[in-house]
Write a protein that binds this DNA or RNA. Sequence first.
RNA 1: AGGAAUGUAGCUCAGUUGGUUAGAGCAUCGUCUCGACAAGGCGAGGGUCGUCGGUUCGAAUCCGACCAUUCCUACCA
Length: 921
Amino acid sequence: MNKYTPQDIEQSWYQKWEDSKYFAPSGTGESFSIAIPPPNVTGTLHMGHAFQHSLVDSLIRYKRMQGYNTLWQMGTDHAGISTQMVVTEQLAAEGIKPSDLGRGAFVEKVWDWKEESGDTISKQLRRLGASLHWETERFTMDEGLSKAVLEVFVRLYDEGLIYRGKRLVNWDPVLKTSISDLEVVSEEESGSLWHFRYPLADSPGEYLVVATTRPETMLGDTAVAVNPNDERYKHLVGKTALLPLVNRAIPIIADHYVDQEFGSGCVKITPGHDFNDYDIGRRHDLEIITILNEDASINENAPPKYRGMDRFEARTAVVADLDALGLLDKIEDHTLAVPRGERSGVVVEPFLSDQWFVDIKPLADPAIKAVEEGDIEFIPKNTENIYFAWMRNIEDWCISRQLWWGHRIPAWYDDEGNFYVGRSESEVREKHDLPEDVNLEQDADVLDTWFSSALWTFSTLGWPDKTPELETFHSTDIMITGHDIISLWVSRMIMMTLKFIGEVPFHKVYIHGLVTDADGQKMSKSKGNGLDPLDIVNGISIDDLVAKRTANLMQPRMAQKIEKATRKEYPDGIMAFGTDPLRFTFFAIASRTRTVRFDLKRVEGYRNFCNKLWNAANFVMTHVENQDEDLNSSEIQLTPVDEWITSEFQNVTTAVCFAMETYRFDLAAKAIYEFIWDEFCDWYLELSKPILNADTISDAQRRGTRQTLAKTMEATLRLAHPFLPFLTEELWQKLPESVRGSGETIMLQAYPATDETLINQVAQDDIAWLKKVVSGVRNIRGEMDISPAKEIPVMFANGTNEDRERLDRFSDLLIPLIRPEDLIWLEPGEEKPLAATALADEMEILVPMAGLIDKEAELARLDKEIERKQKDREKTEKKIGNPNFVEKAPEEVVQKERDKLKELDSALEKLNQQRMSVASI
RNA sequence: AGGAAUGUAGCUCAGUUGGUUAGAGCAUCGUCUCGACAAGGCGAGGGUCGUCGGUUCGAAUCCGACCAUUCCUACCA
């Protein structure tokens, strides 16, 4: 076998698995299903996706091998805003505006783009080894899912849970659509606080001072508010101010919302352009004036001078004009949270418009209850707080978007502005008895993408039809996603699924941490610190990486900085690590923390681990190839070494299964790593060599070890398969059929299960003893700088009968590991030579000093050991000396301490004696 | 402002229901080409478990306060 090169072995297996339809549900056994959090159909895979889907894939493979009827349902969503943006930008590059094309042609273009780029993400998922069921792949805009969306909309409307209304919404003036609260990101930015003087209408010369961060909105002011308890302004409540520039008389009102401490204590009220002001406006029945157009330019409700100006242009003009009138009191520096559209990056405006809403309370209440009562369990538990916090303060959901790409709202308007909701125009006509000569126009808006995603678990299974798939696989078992998705999607799925299916969409929600770079920084395009998972799999040159990170930047001036940082961090680019090492890294870092730092050093470490497994398999192969006679023989005798590794295999199997049942992917990975490297490779393979090679070993024992070697290797590959699918398949296929059976693929073999009868404490104790002896000698060699090649005399003294018996029994195994000149058992009373000493419990291991050992070095080594034991002894003695401890602690704990003290005393005595004799030279 | 989380070796993290000599990987130091593996073997060093209190016979683990860091929600116009 040649070197481990992941690229060579990973490419072909996936194709074979998929062609053989191994990912499809088996149709037998208890069902286990997971719905993929639908990636954007035109998007690309980022580290978060790769992390998430690796976790899911391990679970699915684990359950599939355990015999469950598994379904990992594939699908993508249409990502309304971002997809429309991408296509709009592409058209802009050709000098085409969407309005030039018209709605129908534009939507055609989007479908073209979907066809063109839609398989990127699928290819990427395949490269990661994701065992998704592709044959039933769904898309939120496909016919079936669109039917589900229609059905849900109409039913909710008929029940009065969807309504249309004029409300203040977050408005993106570039995309010219409403967006949800969750699509708005507010970050602190430095700005100014302008203080303006508003003259009082009835008292010439007197004025109020109001402060604002958005001067241009004053054009839409309809009141000034003060706190009712504010002594400074009490006398003004009920009076009128004269709005400068506009010359509108506006009332001075009292409202508890006003903070007396902030600014002047007077607040200008603009109900048309501020959410808080809107609420105040409703409380006080104020006029609502909209002064902006859809693109955030000033409209005809403002004085002629400002009409047509952009909002920021108007800001400057308003400030200048007020200053000229002597009404600018002062300007202060002020940091404020500026709301920007997540997609467009522009400042979002509160904007009054006609929108469709879901009356959310009736849906939210049962959804809250489902989690409270444990029908849905969040993992880790505390992430349910995010859910509860959102759900308990939930506001009606604005579901309409002023876009062309998406599910068009199924409402039709007649010429009088009456609207009718139904599954189609003809249904509407029939239902409302509208003859053909009544003109009907469908609502131009589309639905929020999350409206269709909310139906995901059941719409992908065929709803509204009653399909066998729905029957078998719903509710799904678990949803694995990030914490930012809880409000966006998880909550909406729970609400919609409870409403329409009457069951939960999933029983568990596993929330994974956010993948950051090695410094804990969120990966982002603008920071230029993002990694493409496939670049780690396939490798990338430094020039390509720099090009990728600096292309299409929103702030092109960052390019230089990004390039410098990138060249510093990856001077040679990224080497091709392969999928398995990348996946294993994801499992290893999937602990219960909020953020997981991703460090390529870890991938390198797990690549080394894969290499280790590869080489171990290589070794096993040389001992099982063409050995069918031995492998098939029933005349075998198992040595304690074989019984021990078999016993250890049961332990690791228990640990991995427990970890998977509790979604501790990190602990599963750790258990596998330690078993393979620290037990199987470091000890078992080494111990098997003398058995397989020595003449003194019986044929039956040799066969026993050969079979154990083969069986353990084969079972270990199955144990590791959900985590390292490609490597394990490759190695498993190489094993002879007499070892692995005649199955076609490892991914459909049975997952190992613990066999309690194979746990062998005696064998484990034997090997623990053997390890102690070997480690003792190795320690002396290492500390004394004795070459491993040099054969040294090794003596044993003061041992028990059991020690002596074990020494006899295991000397053949010990010899190759410790390379002694000879092994000598000293009888009690027999004189001990001056020697370096190690202890294996009671037994002393002696390496005579003559010509080998440096006196000072040995004294130092002994002192270190004595000091360590002395410290431990003091602690133990103190415990036992405490009458409260002896009285109150459980008997077994006290006894343990007593035994420990005895052992330490005996060890110390030996070490001190040894020290004296060495010192006396 | 409200809510939450985290603080363990130089770095990144494990540490189940309180009882281990507090562990691992990476990094560091020493050493070795011994027929699976230098992407390796063997050996070693490195920690007052953020600080101070409390509960307990016993605390990294439970409770409180404080300090530090991070995130989320709502924002003061």
